[in-house]
Design a protein around this nucleic acid. Structure first.
Lengths: 133, 133
DNA sequence: CTTGAAATCAGTAATGATTACTAATATTAA
DNA sequence: TTAATATTAGTAATCATTACTGATTTCAAG
């Protein structure tokens, strides 16, 4: 199934590149719709999945029940705020190679690992201190 | 809301303690039903959530779209097989404290992190080599 | 031992994210 | 230009999980 270009796929990729906040499929949908009001949600899902498969974007699963997407495919770490749910890039040097460490006493093969961080983002910290929570 | 004991909750906890394979809510349901055919799926979900909240079990989100549960609440790492989806405990010494490292250049507060590993389990490795995949 | 307030239950309906289906449209190599 | 095929819009279906509701259990106080 040779890939054929599509306006919709390009719009989706384009939009994702303008954002640093790792939007969900639904956010991509509502935004791309401003430019292309006829695009369908299914098309957004299909193309996000396809773009992730061919490595042009990254799918992020932070355990909040929704998939997030990131046009930055370089290795970096993510933080999710327990209060507002926003996903933020972390400025961290690459962590030690835990994969090889973990593979020592394991009979199968480990091909990768995911690390993500959670807590409270700057915004939500401020809100809390204002309200003395 | 003072906790009151319930047969159903005890059965769920009991079953979970017999398993090392981190079953999903649905697996818990079908198994506990052998002993208590009237238990409802909603009860299983509610109690798994409650047990996780009070720290008696652990909820594991491995990004496969389903929650897994573990009666072992000690800190340890998990592996998920990309082929068969099974979740397995890893025998790894505790990894370096990445949380504090990650918090250096971050304005909010990081309260924890999750690391999990993926690849192919022993079983699926064997299947592949048998079939020369 | 009763009793009654509150927690819990079974059963079922509702939700929300995602995927599957289908007939129409767009892309592209020949 | 054409014809094979990838892609689309729109909608229906799926799947995990949560919410609701009236009945049942639990348990502390009398």
């Amino acid at each position: 199934m040779a890939l054929k270009r599509s306006k919709q796929r390009e719009q989706i990729k384009q939009f994702l590149m303008t954002r640093k906040d790792h939007p969900t499929a639904d956010v991509v949908y509502t935004n791309v719709r401003r430019e292309n009001p006829n695009i369908s949600l299914g098309t957004v899902y299909r193309n996000l999945t396809l773009l992730a498969e061919i490595g042009e974007i990254q799918r992020i699963r932070m355990g909040d029940g929704v998939d997030h997407f990131d046009a930055d495919t370089s290795e970096h770490y993510h933080f999710i705020c327990n209060d507002c749910g926003s996903v933020i890039d972390l400025d961290v040097e690459t962590l030690p190679d835990t994969c090889s460490i973990a593979g020592k006493n394991f009979d199968g093969e480990i091909t990768g690992c995911v690390t993500y961080f959670y807590g409270r983002c700057k915004n939500c910290c401020n809100v809390c201190s204002e309200k003395n929570l």
